[in-house]
Amino acid sequence: MMQSAARPDRPPPTAAFPVIDRLDTTHASITRMRCDEPGGLPPAPVIASQDAFSAIVQLRPFAAHTLWRDGRQVFAGGHAEGALAITSLQQSWRCHHRASFDNVRLQVGCDELQAFAREHGARAPISLRNPEGDTDAVMLSLARAFLPSLEMPAQASRLFLDQLANAMLAHLVAHYGSASVHMLKTATLSRRQEALAKEYLVAHAGEDVSIEMVAAHCNLSRSYFIKAFKQNTGVTPYRWLLEHRIEQSKGLLRQGIPISEIAARSGFSDQSHFTRIFSGVVGIPPAKWRNRNDL
């Protein structure tokens, strides 16, 4: 399962200690950083340059901060909720957060970004332009979708995280990329490919498999596979597997097996995780479903 940089016993956010939660997907890292102190944080040290891009989405209004690039001040001011900033980390950056803030950032290596763009037909190396704080509703929605996994990393699914990260990368490349790409409108799986994907998902239901692993089993790129699987089935691979596991659990519920044991057999981290997912998919908790469909 995914690991978080912050622990349950972490100190509350203060002017010196922001709360940081981090998850690694197969091809990118996702970090949530927040501080509720009105005065923000002391000036941060310089971020060492690295071969990567960072895309930061503000989850709430951010009143004031100052930003330096390669030692020169390039911004002083605030951002609205949903504001997006994209930076090349090949340059050195330093930031002074002068107010409370809450944001989610995706960091992707340049090699991974180029590989992703090539999957979509980019014929030249690609970079990402900075929208300079313009709001982006799509990125805000995707950032918020990561929050439950960031808060409960032990219950996070790599399939789900990979799908979200893939959607973020697709949006960034299509809307802020420096080179033309061809985002597939439609894609389909053959009957054999669909069967292979479903068989692989079921066979590895108890493991933390990635989108890339399932796509490779079908000899497809991850981006094509995600679109094609949804076109064929109407749902993402993560949702299909989740619904399959819930259907399997219903059979165990009918047998009168304790819910805690069903949770373990079905690959959920604990009974509360199973109950939350079952309720979300079926509409009622497993105990209530069993009473309605009892023996």
Rank of each mutant, 00 (worst) to 15 (best):
D9I: 14
T87Q: 08
G39T: 10
N166K: 08
R7M: 14
F17K: 07
Y238Q: 06
L106T: 12
M152A: 12
A16Q: 13
A156K: 00
A145G: 02
Q114M: 09
I126W: 06
T186C: 03
A48F: 08
Q163W: 00
A83V: 06
A16K: 10
V173R: 01
L41F: 09
A165R: 01
V57S: 06
I20Y: 02
V104L: 10
V138I: 14
E194W: 05
P45K: 12
K198G: 01
L89T: 06
F160G: 00
V282L: 10
L106E: 02
R123K: 14
I259K: 01
G121N: 09
T25D: 05
A76E: 15
E199Q: 12
L241K: 03
D102K: 03
E112R: 13
I246M: 05
M139D: 03
W240C: 03
P125G: 08
L142H: 07
L201R: 06
E132G: 01
T233C: 13
R32H: 04
A156R: 00
E119N: 09
P61N: 09
R7W: 15
Q73I: 12
S266F: 08
S149V: 02
K288I: 10
Y200R: 14
M183R: 14
I126L: 15
I262S: 01
L220R: 09
R10N: 09
L67Y: 11
A83K: 01
A179C: 12
L89S: 02
L41W: 04
A124L: 15
E243W: 05
P148Y: 08
L147R: 11
E37D: 15
A52G: 01
C110F: 09
I126A: 05
L150Y: 00
H204K: 10
A165E: 05
S269K: 00
R265S: 10
G251S: 09
A174Q: 12
P8N: 08
N291F: 10
L147T: 10
A228H: 04
E194Y: 05
L161S: 01
E207G: 03
H182D: 14
S249L: 11
K185L: 15
Y224E: 12
R98L: 15
A99L: 04
Q58L: 12
H120G: 07
T236R: 05
R22H: 10
Q3Y: 12
M33W: 04
S249I: 09
T275P: 01
D70H: 10
N166G: 06
G109Q: 12
A117W: 02
A137R: 15
A52Y: 01
A203P: 04
A115F: 05
